[in-house]
Amino acid sequence: MNAPLIYALTGAALFVFGVTGLMLQAHLLRKILAFNVMGSGIFLVLVGLAQRTGIPDPVPQAMVLTGIVVAIAATALALALARQLLDQSGEMRLPEEEAGKDKLDV
């Protein structure tokens, strides 16, 4: 077990945490955060696996750099959409979710 593999396994764990949060949390802000945790896990897997031969591979590093910037843009758009939903329905949850169970209700 070397350092790159530990990075990659940590990334996989983060991804799984993110998936779990995305499915179990009803509050939209938590869903967006869970989605970002998933993304960070994927970046960690890419960067970790890219250096398991000992030489860092610049191609996945450049891809992760691109991915981070796109993730920021997607997060901002998701926040704007969530704000829009809050303005129109007064709730920070999707209409399909059961109402009144989430303590974090805005």
Binding site: A12, A13, V19, T20, M23, I55, D57
Partner: peptide, 27 residues
Amino acid sequence: VLSLTGALGLVLAWSILDLPASAVRLP
């Protein structure tokens, strides 16, 4: 959900540990 994602995590970890070396040498 927890057991499904737990299984997903195990599969991911196993595939990371079992990954063959890349055939293309990009660096």
